[in-house]
Simulated scan of single mutants.
Amino acid sequence: MPELAFSDASKTSIGIHQRQGKRNSPSLWNVRNQDQFMWDGGVKTLEMQAIVPLQDTNEMGGTIMDLFPKLSKIKLYDSLAHSIYQRDFDPFVLTRALSAYQKSIYQENSTFDDWKNKGIVKDSALVRGFKLFDEELNCTACHSGSSFTNNSLQNNGIYAKYEDPGRYNITADSNDIGKFKVPTLRNIAITKPYMHDGEMETLKEVVEHYKTGGKQHFNQSQHIQPFTLTNQEQTDLIYFLNALTDKQFLD
């Protein structure tokens, strides 16, 4: 849903025939800055990623062999394929076109950007919240850079035992159990629910989880350590996270 920064507001996404997906649908905002895709990082390019939901039985439930005879009959698609790629509408065209569109979903125009790039400060709570996030809590160990993610895979201790083992599904390495991709925090205020399975509904719940230091899973990231916040500090931290919402969503 574009108005939700291309997330869907569901705990786990609904696919073909109302089948329940296994994971939460992450935002596509600034996806061009990522170098691995899916929550488990199992796909390395946007072009390859486009094929995955098309053929997943819980998502679109199709096959490439069935899909392209239908799509190739649509004159507009075929005409554009010849105009842009000099070839018939085929899997190459589909994956490149989808990737090109997704890479265009990019903008950094939030209240935070006004302060960071232009020195415009509308509320000191933003500055205090970012200082907590960056310097005191070291959240930038994972949520770094302009997209607020280092694109790594981490176990953030949300469970002591994971029903969905995450990266382990790809590698079969027990050191990867419970590891999922660190999501961007851009537009985090409008892309709830949170975590790979949509387990948390509010940013306050997320902060409370990290305050506890996690459930101490054996693969839990060393960066997840317990901490305390005053009521004002927690308010400031969440204020900063809200300030990462792009202005177009505030109208």
Rank of each mutant, 00 (worst) to 15 (best):
R32I: 00
R32L: 01
D35L: 00
Q36C: 01
F37D: 05
M38Q: 09
D40A: 13
G41Q: 09
G41K: 04
G41P: 13
K44R: 12
L46K: 07
L46T: 07
E47C: 06
Q49K: 08
Q49E: 13
Q49I: 07
A50T: 06
A50N: 07
V52Y: 05
P53A: 02
Q55N: 02
Q55R: 01
D56A: 01
D56T: 02
D56F: 01
N58P: 10
E59F: 04
M60V: 07
G61W: 06
T63S: 07
M65W: 10
L67K: 03
L67E: 13
K70L: 11
K70C: 11
L71D: 09
L71R: 10
L71Y: 11
K73P: 08
K75R: 10
L76P: 11
L76Q: 12
Y77H: 06
Y77I: 03
Y77L: 11
D78K: 01
D78R: 03
L80A: 04
L80Y: 06
H82D: 12
H82Y: 13
H82R: 11
S83T: 15
S83G: 14
Y85C: 13
Y85K: 13
R87G: 14
R87E: 15
D88W: 14
P91S: 01
F92H: 07
V93W: 02
L94W: 02
T95R: 01
T95E: 03
R96P: 09
A97W: 08
A97C: 10
L98D: 09
S99M: 02
K103I: 02
K103T: 01
Y106W: 00
Y106C: 00
Q107C: 03
S110G: 08
T111D: 15
F112G: 08
D114N: 12
D114I: 11
N117I: 10
N117Y: 13
G119R: 04
V121H: 07
V121T: 12
K122F: 09
D123M: 08
S124F: 13
A125R: 09
V127A: 14
R128C: 12
G129C: 10
G129Y: 05
F130T: 06
K131G: 05
K131W: 04
K131E: 12
K131M: 10
